Amino acid sequence: MIRLVVVDDQELVRDGFALILDAQDDIEVVGTAADGASAVALCRAEQPDVALMDLRMPVLDGIEATRRVVVQCPGVRVLVLTTFDDDENVVRALRAGASGFLLKDTPRAALVASVRAVAEGETMLDAAVLRRLVSGHLRAPGPAHAAALARLTGRESEVMRCVAQGQTNAEIAAALHISETTVKTHVARLLAKWGARDRVALVVLAHEAGLVP
């Protein structure tokens, strides 16, 4: 059973998401919150698997709430809710440790699938939206990027490029004709070589290093 908290300052949005998700046989909404401070407290108390987090909220915004949840509740994966006009905050949330993002008008089936995927350790990054997001907020490549790229094998570069395009482990395995276990091994090595926290960090680093056009 996936334990979930829903965080949004708009009551209709919050209750709507909670109603949809709690109706699933494998998802239990264990709490809701209307601001970032309450969200952090709720995550500490309930230790859910996933927190569905709005970014623009009173008291404490979703970015700082995400940062605190990631530090204080390392077992909780944060999936942020966003709109098309909130690029800068989404990038900041990803840097804060969010496991991905969803647009607020995401269809019901995609919402449910996204929560399940994040609970399983995947990231939710729409490739087209991600390219638009990161293109305006990248750090310039530096010596650290060049040094890290030089340490990668050819296969690791291929896997990192696929990760940066938002592909799941299964999709990468199919594209490169290798097993999912091998993909996981490569991803683990990439995280270690880059000193990255998770796949989201790898995505940003891949774009910054120029691995993705």
Rank of each mutant, 00 (worst) to 15 (best):
L79T: 10
L111T: 05
V118R: 00
V91F: 02
S135M: 09
G97S: 10
A93M: 10
D61G: 10
V112W: 00
A98W: 02
V71K: 15
V112G: 04
V78Q: 06
E88V: 14
V118H: 03
E88R: 14
D61N: 14
C73T: 15
L102T: 04
R67N: 09
Q72S: 13
L81V: 08
A93S: 13
A96N: 02
A113T: 05
T106Q: 01
G97A: 04
V59L: 06
R92S: 07
T106G: 04
G97Y: 10
R68W: 04
R68F: 03
D87V: 12
F84E: 13
R56I: 13
L130A: 13
D86Y: 04
M57S: 04
P107C: 08
E120Y: 00
A119T: 03
L125T: 03
A110D: 15
D126L: 03
A117T: 01
V129L: 12
A51N: 05
V71H: 13
D54W: 03
V50I: 12
C73S: 15
T83I: 10
T66E: 07
R116F: 06
A51P: 06
A109H: 12
A110K: 11
T106E: 11
V71I: 14
A51H: 01
L111N: 05
R92P: 00
A51R: 04
A117K: 13
V90L: 10
L94F: 07
S135N: 10
V76I: 12
A65E: 06
A109G: 08
V70K: 07
M124Q: 12
I63F: 06
L130D: 00
M53Q: 07
T123V: 14
R131D: 13
E120K: 14
T123Y: 11
